[in-house]
């Protein structure tokens, strides 16, 4: 257990602290604050105007849909992959564990390109066949969901896997010895043990999904009211000299992501307190 150690703060310590504060204020805090003041420069007018615009409401709805579906998919697969990586032995396991981090290292534009090359309706590998069955992926909602799921794929795994490793298998074995089946042990023992990690993962996935821009831009086609997401709307409004509108949507999206971080922050602080209580 890492004990809190107070550093005798020499002049160097104070200098370092000052540097860090100034750096973070200039890079993140101040610009973020300016977006808030820009948004409310004319009161709540620009925010209200947003909800009167049916195209924008459709864009927000699409963003929410894609984010929720991608998060559900990534949660189920994330927990599944984590269980496989921690509990099972199979050939290619190390490769899989290296590959699951890949989406973090690939440019969103490349993600979009990759999906178009396989699922593009005109000359993708599978696209024409799928379209002949009446299932359009690229330039439609499924493509947006796939792009969103791709970029946020590792987040649940990165949170859940280490916790699963740490929890070990003893509690599950105890449940089995008391008569619980594999499923019962999973629902009653394993899932509660990884609950908080899973929730962090879900919240981070949600934040990342809502904000995805590059990959979605490539696969969406940006059709007003149909395949335009909220992040695409920010770009478009700004480029069309609707700065107030752009700042208002940006404010909305930023609030959601800051809220997500806050949730994770509070949960983490909570579990950290709990953990240190356990250590005594």
């Amino acid at each position: 257990m890492a004990e809190v150690r107070r550093v005798r703060n020499g002049p160097f310590g104070y200098l370092l602290r000052a540097f860090v504060i100034v750096y973070l204020v200039l890079l993140v805090a101040w610009p973020l604050l300016l977006v808030v003041t820009h948004t409310f420069a004319h009161g709540t007018e620009s925010l209200q105007a947003l909800f009167a615009d049916p195209d924008l409401v459709a864009a927000l709805r699409l963003t929410a849909l894609a984010a929720v579906v991608a998060t559900v998919i990534n949660t189920v697969f994330g927990v599944g992959i984590s269980l496989l990586l921690v509990r099972c032995e199979f050939p290619g396991k190390r490769l899989l564990s290296a590959f699951v981090d890949l989406p973090l290292a690939v440019s969103p534009i490349v993600v979009g390109l990759a999906l178009v090359l396989v699922y593009g309706g005109r000359d993708g590998w599978f696209g024409p066949t799928l379209e002949s069955w009446g299932f359009q992926v690229v330039f439609a909602t499924p493509g947006i969901i796939m792009a969103t799921a791709f970029v946020s794929l590792p987040l649940v795994i990165r949170e859940v896997e280490p916790v699963l490793r740490e929890v070990g298998t003893e509690q599950e074995q105890a449940a089995w010895s008391l008569g619980a089946s594999g499923w019962q042990a999973f629902w009653r023992v394993t899932l509660p043990a990884i609950k908080w990690a899973m929730i962090y993962g879900v919240v981070l996935t949600l934040a990342r999904s809502i904000g995805e821009f590059g990959a979605v831009k490539v696969v969406s086609g940006n059709v007003l009211g149909e395949t335009r997401t909220a992040t695409l709307a920010v770009e478009e409004k700004y480029l069309n000299f609707d700065q107030d509108g752009a700042y208002a949507v940006a404010f909305l999206l930023a609030s959601v992501s800051v809220l997500c971080i806050l949730v994770v922050f509070v949960l983490r602080a909570r579990s950290a307190r709990r953990f240190s209580a356990e250590g005594q």
Binding site: L32, V35, I210, L253, S257
Partner: peptide, 9 residues
């Protein structure tokens, strides 16, 4: 914040 903020924002 930079991790969760939409890149366009």
């Amino acid at each position: 914040v930079p991790f969760a903020l939409p890149t366009i924002v």
